[in-house]
Design a protein around this nucleic acid. Sequence first.
DNA 1: ACTTGTCCTGTCATGCCGTCAGCTTACCGA
DNA 2: TCGGTAAGCTGACGGCATGACAGGACAAGT
Lengths: 215, 215
Amino acid sequence: MTGQVRTVDGRVAGRRGQATRQKLLDCLSEMLSSSPYRDVKVIDVARRAGTSPATFYQYFPDVEGAVLEIAERMAAESAGLAGLLEGRSWAGRAGWQTAQELVDGFLEFWRKNDAILRVVDLGAAEGDKRFSKLRTKILNSVNSSLAGSVAELQSKGRIDKDVNPAAIAGALVAMLAAVASHQKAASSWGVKQAELKPSLALLVHLGVTGRKPTK
Amino acid sequence: MTGQVRTVDGRVAGRRGQATRQKLLDCLSEMLSSSPYRDVKVIDVARRAGTSPATFYQYFPDVEGAVLEIAERMAAESAGLAGLLEGRSWAGRAGWQTAQELVDGFLEFWRKNDAILRVVDLGAAEGDKRFSKLRTKILNSVNSSLAGSVAELQSKGRIDKDVNPAAIAGALVAMLAAVASHQKAASSWGVKQAELKPSLALLVHLGVTGRKPTK
DNA sequence: ACTTGTCCTGTCATGCCGTCAGCTTACCGA
DNA sequence: TCGGTAAGCTGACGGCATGACAGGACAAGT
């Protein structure tokens, strides 16, 4: 489907090569978690992987290229986020439950991949189309599902006809992403993790249904 | 008050020195707008300012240091954001107006300073305390004001007692910031600017008052 | 053992980093 | 007018990262 994995100079990578490549990606991931993106150097990644910079450049055009690779893999995993909303109801207590689980799942996913998501966010904000696309892809499963729910409730008159469901959904998802990527900061600023989640769930519920949840 | 401006090696900067310093800051700002943060090099900034790298290092320890300087200046300006909420009412039509103007002002501020805010966001997300503090400072004027409104309405029973006003406010502000920094991305993903603003205002109004706005 | 193709690294030219000594310029008091 | 002093700037340097290449090491098949 995706074709074989290839080196920069066109050769197809064999077993050993793929293992090395993967090791480089893993080490890059670790580096991204432990040091500022700006300071991640090819030579450090290579050293950590027990190989040389030249090897790195055989598999990736540059650091950004490797980051994209990691991000794409993660984007594939992100499809699982859609499961947080599939077949869920937004009515009554079930609605509150849905909102809570969405927030939980979302924050968890973000926490698990925070290092790489930071870089994707930055790239997207800087206007790089490849990162924007990736970010859209990651958020899209949740986003479109939420938009669908909003549209449905809109047709029942709960929400004004002139709001764009996709816009509401986009704003809510952006909120979740933003809060998730500043979780640590939030705590240092007077709000605890445990207090954050219910607030987010409340806002999601309000945004989707236009009503306060019944708990 | 803050003491004189000093060079890295301890000299006090005179008129000329301060001008050079400022020029370097201006050029750095431009570079941040036009190229990825990761690729901003001291030598490019210096060249653009018509000076040499050595001069840059006379005034700033490194690129990060200069960025902090720019960000601090902007943080001071951000105090003006508080004006968007001072003395405003959240009741009835005035409430809708308040929400709209908050969204407008916020997005405008962010658009004006997007390059530097991106870097601050990244630094904060990476856990750098200096950037976190700065980000908190920028958001705090709006944040605390919103939290106050929530708390007030909470005492009137509109909102559940067990939600933390600061958490709601923080989430809303984070939403605004996130959407603002991905404004371009949003349009490429099927939602137009003009449709985004009312949605954000709606969510802000819902979050603060717990009710749909009367338009 | 020989061939073939994959995989890795030594090495090199280039360019940026960050620092220093030392030069030039501006200001000031005598 | 003339040093003296401090501010302001830069050339130059060792060090390191980048990115390219050629060639050696290695595994697998014949």
